[in-house]
Simulated scan of single mutants.
Amino acid sequence: MTYQTLLYELDGAIATVTLNRPDKLNAYTATMGAELEEVFLRADEDDGVRVVIVTGAGRGFCAGADISGGAGAFDTQAEGSVAFQDSGSKGRVRGGGAGFVGAMFNCRKPIIAAINGAAVGVGVTLTLPMDIRITTPAAKFGFVFARRGLVPEAGSAWFLPRLVGLSQALRWCLSGKLITADEALAGQLVSEIVEPDQLLARAREIALEIAENTAPVSIALTRQMLWRFAGAPDPFGLLKLDGAFAMELGGGPDAREGVGAFLEKRAPDFPGKVSTDMPARYPWWDQL
């Protein structure tokens, strides 16, 4: 399948999604949003994919929404609006059709953002549902919404405080100023700064560490448990769940393989697949 605004490449167990409007610094459009939703549903459903890397073509990651149509770029009634038009979503997202944000959040595969340049507005908020963000020394970030007469979108008022803390999220969103890669690292928005020629190699190194050493079902559950319980007021709901999962998985083939590989000092070959072997209580949030 080909996309208008993205490239999708598979190399072994690693899928790489490239925002591909380099002449526009990969500025976001409604078409890009629909294609991101589709591509993450595709990766989620493919047992051959273990990790997804997202990066940008050219010298930028994503310069924000495409405002080339002028002052009416965000006006859904204006002819030049491209950012907020109907994305054409097929409604396949589990959990309520939340577009690409829902597709990323519900994805059973880890997501790594390799941020190769400017990430502003939706260009940075679209990375927040991802799990690991690395960047280059010259990259700039900006939660610029208040400077455009808008509010933080793509669920970022929920994601950002969980990642960097409320105080830091307020500082960045209320000022709307551009921040450097060093500031992003100090604020824990990104976890590493890597030279540009090493960025994708480092992202792939992280991805392979996950793909070659962990069980797909365990990773899918771990990702959802961490995201969904990080803001819980107490651990008791989680305690009802993680024990049940541990007991179910503990008697299964993945646990036997994991222990056997460790004792035999060899690489594991986990048989479990997210398409067929998720525990009966998954997705638990649909059962509450």
Results as ranks from 00 to 15, higher is better:
L199K: 08
I115V: 13
S218G: 12
A207E: 00
K109P: 01
P216L: 15
E205H: 13
A201Q: 06
V122E: 11
L226A: 12
T125S: 14
R171E: 00
A138K: 13
N116I: 02
L226D: 05
G121P: 02
W172H: 10
P196L: 08
A118Y: 04
G142V: 00
G121L: 13
Q224N: 09
L174D: 04
G155D: 11
D182C: 14
L208E: 08
A169I: 01
L170Q: 14
R204S: 01
N106Y: 09
I206G: 00
A119F: 10
P161E: 14
L200A: 06
E183W: 04
V190D: 01
G187R: 10
M225D: 03
A118H: 11
L128V: 07
L150W: 12
I112D: 00
D182A: 15
A118W: 06
G165D: 04
V151H: 15
K177N: 09
L163A: 14
E209H: 13
S218L: 10
V151I: 07
I111V: 11
I132W: 08
T135G: 11
L189A: 09
L126E: 06
R223N: 04
D131T: 04
R147G: 05
P161K: 15
E209F: 06
A113D: 09
L178E: 08
L150K: 15
Q224A: 12
R162I: 00
A184G: 08
L178F: 06
R133G: 06
Q168W: 03
R162F: 00
V124D: 01
I210N: 04
E205A: 11
N106E: 14
W158Q: 14
V164H: 01
L160T: 02
P152V: 15
A181F: 05
I134E: 01
P129S: 14
E205M: 08
S175D: 01
E195L: 15
V194H: 07
A211Q: 09
P161S: 15
P129G: 14
L199E: 03
E153P: 03
D131F: 04
E195W: 10
R223Y: 01
A157C: 05
S156C: 08
G123F: 08
F145T: 05
T214R: 13
I111T: 07
T180H: 10
G187D: 08
A146L: 11
S218R: 14
N213Y: 03
Q224K: 10
L128D: 04
R162L: 07
D197I: 02
E212T: 07
L208A: 11
G117N: 13
L189K: 08
I219H: 05
P137W: 15
R133L: 09
L126K: 09
A146Y: 10
A114N: 04
L163N: 12
F143R: 11
W158H: 15
R171I: 00
P129Q: 13
A157H: 09
